[in-house]
């Protein structure tokens, strides 16, 4: 059987670029090289580069998704997307790959657009039983910021976050009305819209979900205990800044409730491949969805690889399953 030429798309343009590169190294190692020729492609703005013959960096030809090799070229058969944030998680890359007829590993364009836009995602998930959503105020660029009205509606503290971004970049926990405007300005650096949400006190959990033609499977739940005020960029990616316990210490019923909610949210948003859904669980047992990540972290310190290990699944088998599923659906 012909070996597939897989472009492992890494990097990206967002503040999550470094995280995406770390994830990619682990995924690259996990690919079964007997089945796949894996080419690491660094996507940075319009410059997509790949290591060609002799270790030389060559530019990917995006008119046919190939790289030059000597007098010929290698055309990629498949794209495995490991880019967090834009353009790997917001639908742009998926749109390009659809246009080129290249099968890829993630949720499709519309699903990625939906999940990356936090407000839109909440709208889609709002009808799902068992999932609560924090009350919010949405600001578009150019809107007047009215701190008093925001506090009157949501109370304090509030979370101010970019409406379309990841890894908690640009997120601030605001405790005083006077801090709202600065936090909004910081969030606007990351996104054209800013979401302000009421503070929900509770334990934080992440749950991976695999959706392929083989079925839908929720992975064991992870509890995230940040040593900072909340699970921000530093807490996520600095050793010792948070404890992540997999499987989370909780009753089987609570674990099942979170897994069912994760599946329901991912299905409602028409996700495919492997995604991670994050929640807060209040002391009275109400479950609030935070967000869905359609390209979850896959570095050594990331949550999903630990959940896969806890479920007894090897990353290489998961990669095979995702690729087989995508090819079968074509």
């Amino acid at each position: 059987m012909k070996k597939l030429n897989v472009a492992l798309l890494a990097g990206g343009n967002s503040s999550e670029r470094e995280i995406a590169l770390a994830s990619t190294r682990m995924v690259y190692e996990a690919f079964d090289k007997a089945k796949y020729n894996v080419f690491l492609v660094d996507v940075h703005g319009r410059h997509w580069t790949c290591e060609g013959a002799g270790g030389r960096q060559v530019e990917v030809d995006k008119t046919d998704f190939s790289i030059p090799v000597g007098d010929g070229k290698i055309a990629f058969d498949y794209a495995f997307v490991m880019i967090h944030g834009t353009p790997g998680e917001d639908g742009k890359l998926q749109g390009y790959l659809e246009m080129m007829g290249i099968p890829y590993s993630t949720s499709d364009t519309m699903s990625s657009v939906t999940t990356f836009d936090k407000t839109l995602c909440k709208r889609v998930v709002s009808g799902v039983d068992g999932i609560n959503l924090a009350r919010e105020v949405l600001l578009r660029r150019g809107d007047e910021v009215k701190p008093a009205e925001i506090v009157a509606k949501l109370g304090l503290p509030v979370f101010v976050k970019p409406n379309a971004s990841g890894s908690s970049c640009g997120v601030t926990k605001v405790k005083a009305e006077s801090e709202i405007e600065a936090a909004v300005a910081k969030a606007f650096i990351e996104s054209d819209a800013v979401l302000i949400e009421e503070f929900i006190a509770g334990r934080e959990f992440g749950c991976g979900v695999m959706i392929t033609g083989h079925g839908v499977q929720a992975l064991p739940v992870t509890e995230i205990i940040p040593h900072k005020e909340f699970f921000d960029y530093e807490a996520k990616y600095t050793d010792g800044m948070s404890d992540e316990i997999t499987p989370a210490e909780m009753s089987a019923e609570t674990s099942a409730m979170i897994q069912q909610a994760a599946i329901a949210a991912a299905v409602a948003c028409r996700c495919r491949g492997i995604v991670r859904v994050d929640f807060l669980l209040t002391t009275v047992g109400d479950l609030y969805m935070i967000e869905i990540n359609t390209v979850p972290g896959m570095s050594g310190g990331s949550i999903v690889p630990k959940q896969l290990a806890a479920a007894g699944r090897r990353l290489s088998d998961v990669i095979d399953e995702i690729i087989d599923d995508t090819l079968c659906r074509r």
Binding site: R46, T63, G91, K92, G95, Y96, V113, R140, D192
Partner: peptide, 25 residues
């Protein structure tokens, strides 16, 4: 209409990946 503007911006970015390379190799 902000929603439509976002769609238009996104489509243009998607199309640019391919067609900018065709016209500006």
């Amino acid at each position: 209409n902000m929603e439509v503007r976002q769609y238009v911006k996104m489509i243009n970015e998607i199309l640019e990946y391919r067609y900018k390379d065709i016209y500006n190799p």
